[in-house]
Nucleic acid binder design. Structure first.
Lengths: 292, 292
DNA sequence: TCCTCCACGGAACATACGTTACAGTAGAGC
DNA sequence: GCTCTACTGTAACGTATGTTCCGTGGAGGA
């Protein structure tokens, strides 16, 4: 058995061939691997509302001979995880892209969020949660993904959120709508896009509050901004990483949601109801939903 | 029993009152705690060159009633260590959104990348780097940001990359173009979007290689997929986090870039030259450029 | 030298565990 | 409607495991 494979991967691979009862076992295993590491066949059967034999058949379906074999596999994995991270990393080849990405993006997330200025964060959340102000999200080509997430999630919490994109004509028209007091969140990395810088400056002169998410406190974007957040963007490949910027957006949106809780809940429920009534979503709900 | 105490501390405290044989058991326990977590009385006795009853007396000496009690204690400790930082920390007030996001997203990135199956990763990078195959990126509404990043960056490395989005008519038309051997990367979380699932299934029956990036190995998206990657998506606010999924995209893109280095460099240079000539970019290079 | 105490392990025991055989059941195909 | 197949839980079985009881051996003291 290849030790590099995680039990989730094995389950995923065999998922198609599982019977309904076996699938319930699989869900229990994924949900709480400790149950198979420390538990017994009977406990796993009870947790998944099945029977002993079904658990055994599940183990067999994954390629193990009996429950003890599966258990040994999971225990080995856990033992691996217990060893210090440094020791574990040394084992993987230095050329391993996944390992390098892991350390790099952990760094990016940490530096991004640890570098957040409390006052700036509170102030930014404040204006973003102010329903009197329109919100515009400006993102460079590289950072469009981050901008999309920010705009999409904010839009679910409040109205008057616009993602500015498209042709320069359309951008200009949208910029023209900006009123004093509105909020513009601009996301871009080096090398900065000229149109975005100009748009940001025009927004400022129109009286907007400019919030910059950039890769440097010295970026041209930061110069014009009232609030600046610096994202760690070091990448392992030829491109910058956006993991740090995503984490920042995550925090901002959570802050806004907390501030708007009363209002946002109703809005979210309405959106969800619409989706549900339209049958657009597939729940495929596990029996135990631990979601908040 | 005070749960905060480690088993080593308990042993040290009781060490004075231990008989010689019991001391050998203590040494074995300290040397390899996994032996008591996963092993049996007989194994621990053999390892310490003692007998079953001595192991039992040792456990009693530490204040436990029987071996199972000692074992439960050690297992509890291990479970604590495995638990993600977000849960371990929950006793603390953690009113600070930024701090909560930090621990949560570090967890998300770590679980996502540590859960990556090496073989699946290599295979996925392989097909994504195969210039004979067209690549299509399918993303749910929630995950559109991640999809955008993946499509954008891949498009800079190779041609024939398409982000499938828009009205259902347009989606259908794009799906129709999929040929056997093409690659479809589908990104979605619970609750899964119906159109996306159907599109993915149609792609599979058209002969495409489906790569799923989802929040569970048992998601309906994963069922049809040839390769599955599970992203940690735990969010601090009402929405899922995309930091983990993005880190995975980061790794995938870096892997493809490494594989295509020769070809990609030329392509990147050409794109960059076009931007530069058009005057679209502002360098504003900081004094120290750490870029490779 | 004999007695006493205590550490220690062998052996017996009850239990719980993994495993297997089997029967009941629901659904698909004809 | 009938048969066959696939799925699933009940019950029985053999074994390994934790635990207890008791005998052995050796050290210290009278």
């Amino acid at each position: 058995m290849d030790e590099s494979r995680t039990v989730s991967a094995l389950v995923a691979e065999a998922a198609v061939h599982l019977t309904p009862a076996e699938r319930r076992v699989a869900e229990a295993v994924i949900d709480d691997p400790k149950l198979v590491a420390f538990g017994t066949v009977a406990q796993l059967a009870a947790r998944s509302s099945t029977s002993g034999p079904t658990v055994l058949r599940f183990a067999g379906r994954l390629g193990f001979v009996g429950f003890v074999d599966l258990q040994a596999f999971v225990r080995e994995q856990i033992a691996d995880q217990l060893r210090p991270a440094t020791e574990r990393i040394r084992e993987r080849p230095a050329t391993d892209v996944v390992a390098r990405t892991l350390t790099t993006d952990l760094d990016n997330v940490r530096t991004t969020l640890e570098g957040v200025d409390e006052a700036a964060f509170a102030a930014t959340v404040g204006v973003l949660a102010d329903r009197q102000r329109s919100v515009y999200v400006l993102a460079g080509e590289d950072s469009r993904g981050v901008g999309v997430v920010l705009a999409t999630q904010l839009d679910l919490l409040r109205d008057r959120v616009t993602l500015i994109e498209g042709s320069s004509v359309r951008v200009s028209r949208q910029i023209a709508e900006i009123a004093p007091g509105d909020v513009v969140v601009a996301v871009d990395h080096r090398r900065y896009e000229r149109w975005l810088l100009e748009a940001a400056r025009r927004a400022v002169s129109a009286g907007a509050v400019l919030v910059a998410v950039s890769d440097s406190a010295l970026s041209p974007l930061a110069e014009a901004a009232a609030r600046v957040f610096v994202a760690g963007v070091r990448g392992v490949g030829p491109f910058d990483s956006h993991a740090g910027a995503f984490a920042l957006v995550h925090a901002l949106v959570a802050g806004v949601a907390a501030k708007l809780r009363r209002r946002a809940v109703g809005r979210l429920d309405a959106v969800e109801a619409a989706w549900r009534d339209g049958g657009d979503l597939v729940d495929h709900s596990p029996p135990k939903d631990e979601r908040r």
